[in-house]
Structures are given as C-alpha cells and as structure tokens.
Design a protein around this nucleic acid. Structure first.
Lengths: 182, 182
DNA sequence: TGCAATCGATTAATATATTAAACACTTTAA
DNA sequence: TTAAAGTGTTTAATATATTAATCGATTGCA
C-alpha cells in the first residue's frame, strides 16, 4: 500500500494541467528537480516538497492521503464480525475491509486488567463510544474518568488516549471512529 | 496554520514515549539526525521522514494532518447525553453541539412497535451500529434483516433505510454515522 | 522546409541532508 | 564520591538533494 512520491506527484501535477516547468516556476524550484522527483531518482526534502505542492496547490495531508474503494455487505451476524486484535482485548469490527471508508464501528470487550498500553498513541480523526456493560477507565490527554453502563466519551483522536479495565468483570463497549484507525 | 515538522515530530515522539535514540534505532537513522530535525535545523527528505515515522509508528497522512482543536468535554455520564427524542424512539447523543464535527454516536432505544417510518430515510454519509439488547428489523435498499444482540449493520446512508422494532421488548442499539445527520 | 518554443530528461557543480563521533548534562546504583 | 548509562546537542566528514545548463524530441507557425 506504500505509494511512491514520484508517481503521486506526476499524477497530481497532470491532474492540475501543469507542465513540469510551469509547476517549477510557481513553486520556485527547477524543472529538473521535478523531473528527478517524479522518476524517484531523488527523495525531496519536505521543505522542497512543500514548495512544490504549494504550486499545485495541494496540502501535504491530502498528498499523503490513502486511496479509496467501494463496499457492499450490509448485515453482519455477531459471528461474522471481523476480529481485529487478540490478546486481552477483543475488537469485533463491523464490516470487513474498510479501506476507503470513513466510519469504523467496533464491538469491544475488555477483560479485567486489560489495557491499550501506556504509549498513548494518537491518530487523525474523531472517536466516540458508549459503555454497554462493566466499567472502563478512559484517559484522554491527562483527563481520566471511570465510565459505567450508559456512560460515553467523545474526543479528537489526535489527543493522546488510553483505555483500561481496572475492574474485575469484563467491559463491553461499542465505539466508533472516523476515519478508521486500523 | 503552518505547523513546523520539528515540533510535530518531537510531539508525536514524546507521545509515543520514545527517546531520540530509541526512535533512531527503530527507524534505522542516527539520533543526531532526529535531534536536528526536531530543531528544524534540517529539512529531512521524505524518504528519511518515512523511516522515522514508521518507527513511531504514525502515517505520513496523520503526521501532516492539521492541528488539534482546543480541549472540549470528553466524558459524558448517561444522564448527560443529550436526548433527541422522536416519538417512541429515544436517541441519546454522545456530545452536545456537534456542529463542525464529523462523527455522531448515539445510544438509541426503540420501544416495541416503534418505526422510523416507511418514507425510508436517505442522506449523505455512512452509518453503522451494533445491537445491544432486543431485536431490530433493519431494511436497506430492499434488503431486510432482523438483528439480535451482538449483530450489526454498516451501509452507505444514501441507500434508503428504515428501522423497526417488531418484537415485544425494547431494543437498545449503539449507532454511529458520519457526518452527523441531525 | 526552416526557426522558435515548448516538452521531459540528463549532467557537472554546488548546496544541504545525514552520519559517526564526540560533547555536556542528568539520573541511577554502588 | 564514583562509574555507568541515560538524555539531547554539536561538529567535521560524507552522501545526497538541488541547481544551472544543456540535451534530443516534439509541436506550431512562417
């Protein structure tokens, strides 16, 4: 799924209807450099790539965005949900391959003592959920709360976050995030 | 709005709980280079940045995503969910004002006999949910299924759809859609 | 037939990214 | 105290990105 910078640049440049020289002039770099980048004969510095993309124009984020694909299946029996990650946390994802989709919904079960980890990773998007059974300790960017049945959360996924079941019964949660995070 | 690569890298590295040397080893580059990047004393090639981000790990796309929102309310007790009631169906929305947000998560309860109507809702976006209790009849674009606890659905919201509780006990569902539909 | 103006690709020269090694500082343990 | 291992930073040497100039091929116009 690793797309290469060269083909991607050529693609967006041509989509914008610009020649290498036209783009080079708008971006304040040389046409030769654009040629080399598009052939992947050099890996531009992000400073240079920024200048080039500004000439198109397209944002870094959009330039590096993943690509899309359609989908069909609608209904999923509980044993058809795709299990994503094993260990002491069960992630049952609604739908199979979500690449190209914007929404990810999961039915998660946290065994007592389970923990998403201390590393507090962050990713783009928004994230929310409702507790169905048991209790879950949720930490977001320094704030912490223990949530029970019916309680809920909603936050920007870029804020570092962590989930732990500190109780002694399993915790069931239905969560949603956009776009899918894994 | 121009965020700089150095501070962003430092921020995500620290969020992942890694030292410059630890990250350098995982990424296959030198710690000195990471130091220089974080100080913006050099602009890495995208090839190098890719290696570094893979060590965290975080995608290019996420790395270049626009910056955080100011802190907002994260946790919601069940009596704090905002009720959007529609007749015999109870919609408890996670979060207050969702304007400008991309994700809407709701804890819904369908009383026996309740029905979103045969006019078949249709709107832009994607929609998914997991049944928590009871049974729900879901119709999407001609396809119909009766779903029970743990079952789920996922579809493009532009396909006409309808929800009915044809059973004799209340049905609880956690649903998500993007973007928010009301 | 030209000549002029494009196009993208290539090359030697040069600017800069990257490395390897050392620096100064803090923490931990004996 | 002492040593050892951790942190981030700095520097000279080297690898590579980038430039400026040129190339051959194509297109349009006289």
């Amino acid at each position: 799924m690793e797309f290469d910078v060269g083909s991607r640049l050529r693609s967006v440049r041509e989509a914008a209807g610009l020649s290498q020289r036209q783009l080079a002039k708008r971006a304040g770099v040389t046409n030769g450099m654009i040629s080399l980048i598009e052939q992947n004969r050099t890996s531009p510095s992000v400073a240079s790539l920024r200048k080039v993309l500004k000439g198109i124009p397209i944002s870094m984020s959009d330039f590096f965005a993943e690509n899309f694909r359609p989908k069909e299946k609608v209904f999923f029996r509980r044993d058809e949900l795709t299990e994503l990650s094993r260990g002491s946390i069960s992630f049952l994802q609604v739908g199979g391959d979500l690449s190209g989709r914007k929404l990810q919904v999961m039915h998660e079960t946290y065994k007592p003592g389970s923990d998403t980890g201390r590393s507090m990773l962050s990713h783009e998007g928004e994230e929310a959920g409702v507790i169905v059974n048991g209790h879950l300790e949720v930490t977001v960017d320094g704030e912490r709360a223990v949530l029970g049945p019916g309680d809920a959360f909603y936050f920007d996924s870029r804020r570092p976050h962590r989930f732990r079941n500190t109780g002694n019964v399993p915790c069931e949660v239905v969560t949603a995030c956009t776009p899918p995070s894994f």
